[in-house]
Design a protein around this nucleic acid. Structure first.
Length: 487
DNA sequence: TGAAATGTTGGGGCG
DNA sequence: ACGCCCCAACATTTC
């Protein structure tokens, strides 16, 4: 007699180690049926770079499960319908999964849970993605945090749960049901194949995540607090896509930080992990965050929507070397250094007056670590409309930022090779170079490299003026003279 | 997790 | 010796 299986529904937890749903399912002793459902009707659809990553990550998961004697079933379409089909095909009596936290995913999981419960099917979900549940940390008054520092303090007061190192020995469910063919999902680009830079940069999957983590812990983290700001060197962890797809868990990262010899580098990295938590916290409590500014007055911001301008930014043709380098790194590798993300985002939103949503959409499509919580929270932060955002007048000067964080121009030279022969002095402002210097470096402005799309000083003034006008508007509307205090 | 403008201070040159 | 100016180096404020 065969026992009915338990479905382990993989979501954004594409790993074996420290996987709560998988471990809990294995512990029941029931035969397991691991499943991944590609929700190809999701809105917005998964971006191109993320799809490329997902392919590799699923291959890696298949291999990992294979070592446990399990075979991953792939399905695509509406998750509830696909789960129903599988239950019908296998007489499964339960579904275990690790939760997602995007508003649409929460709604979908809730209705799936209710549906399964109605059918008498066990439905149990777990937290695999966060150090803290988004509802776990509260202010003194019981509300959500809106400012990072108090959130950070609350986070370190509650130490995160330790990862589970349990080794599992699951029983596979013997079956003859069909799985989709991963290749037939066409997650990888073909015509044209733009993924060459991605392939040479990344190793999606749990093994790749582990390797990256190990080398980061062994070498890079020591100087993380200073070198993480220098895009020309490999001073960051580059774990963001691995974290996004759940190939490594924040608990694993936190625990090995806690075990290591304390250092400024480690503390700084832990702070970044808490920033990630904070983004999820915000998304959970402010589910409109991906679309609408968290400061409602920003809804009337006078953006100057312009497709051509947006296009120039996307293609790395703004004429500002640090901005163009970042946008080209993104296009080529599916990733951009964090410091440069702030610079290009500030440039788009302030110098170019394009809506932050347009920038977020481009990042969504091109980043391998595209993540609803992080992406929208950080765009709102840069645009000044987030909860704990940078003040609107904080306009990054792309020339100074370049000189400060890419002093030797290594980053610009790598991604904007047409400027490579310029001396350091001019690498972040080629228009300042004497004719002879440009000639010698084989740079012809507006020919081999674009002219500036907007003058920095003029762009800065225009941004400040725009912010001022829209900020003034609601103020006059709601302004009330306070009546004298005496009765 | 800014930048620019403006203010302050203190040392050195010089009449 | 002294006041005066200049200006770099910080510090503060304003956008």
């Amino acid at each position: 007699m065969t026992t009915a299986p338990l479905i382990v529904w993989f979501r954004q937890d594409l790993r074996i180690a420290d996987n709560p749903a998988l471990q809990a399912a294995a512990k029941t002793g029931r035969p397991l049926l691991p499943v991944y459902i590609f929700d190809d009707v999701a809105t917005p659809p998964m971006g191109g770079a993320s799809r490329w990553w997902l392919h590799g990550s699923l291959q890696s998961l298949e291999a990992g499960l294979g070592k446990l004697g399990l075979t991953l079933i792939l399905r695509r379409g509406n998750p509830m319908r696909q789960l129903d089909r599988l239950i019908a095909q296998t007489s499964a009596t339960g579904v275990f999964w690790n939760r997602r936290y995007e508003p649409t995913a929460i709604a979908s999981e809730n209705s799936i849970r209710a549906h399964l419960n109605r059918r008498g099917i066990e439905a149990e979900s777990f937290n695999s993605a966060l150090l803290f549940e988004p509802w776990e940390l509260k202010t003194k008054t019981g509300g959500p945090f809106r400012v990072f520092t108090p959130f950070w303090k609350a986070a370190i007061r509650h130490s995160p749960q330790a990862p589970s190192a349990a080794r599992i020995k699951p029983h596979p469910f013997r079956h003859r049901i069909a799985s989709d063919d991963l290749a037939a999902w066409h997650l990888r680009p073909r015509t044209p194949d733009w993924a060459e830079g991605l392939r040479e940069t990344w190793q999606p999957g749990e093994a790749g995540a582990r390797a990256r983590w190990r080398s980061f812990m062994d070498r890079t983290i020591r100087a993380y607090h200073t070198k993480r700001d220098l895009p020309g060197i490999a001073g960051t962890s580059r774990l963001s896509p691995h974290l996004h797809f759940g190939e490594i868990s924040p608990r694993q990262l936190w625990a090995s930080c806690a075990m290591a010899e304390p250092s400024a580098g480690i503390a700084s990295f832990q702070r970044e992990l808490i920033w990630r938590e904070f983004c999820y916290h915000l998304l959970y409590h402010f589910p409109k965050m991906p679309h609408a500014p968290l400061r409602p007055e920003y809804a009337s911001f006078p953006w100057k929507v312009d497709r051509k301008i947006l296009r120039a930014w996307q293609q790395g043709g703004t004429g500002y070397p640090i901005v163009d380098a970042g946008m080209r790194e993104l296009w080529r590798t599916g990733w951009m250094h964090n410091r440069v993300r702030m610079i290009v985002a500030s440039f788009l939103v302030k110098h170019l007056l394009q809506p932050w949503q347009a920038g977020a959409a481009w990042f969504w499509d091109t980043l391998v670590d595209a993540d609803k919580a992080n992406n929208s929270a950080n765009w709102q932060w840069v645009a000044g409309c987030g909860m704990d955002a940078a003040p609107y007048f904080r306009v990054f000067n792309p020339i100074l930022q370049g000189r400060k964080f890419d002093a030797d121009g290594a980053y610009v030279r790598r991604w904007v090779p047409e400027l490579a022969a310029l001396p350091d002095q001019y690498i972040h402002a080629p228009w300042e170079a004497p004719r002879a210097t440009l000639h010698f470096a084989k740079v012809r402005l507006n020919k081999t490299y674009p002219a500036r799309i907007v003058d920095h000083e003029a762009g800065r003034k225009r941004a400040l003026a725009a912010f001022k006008t829209f900020k003034a508007a609601p103020k006059t509307k709601h302004h009330k003279k306070r009546s004298p205090a005496h009765p």
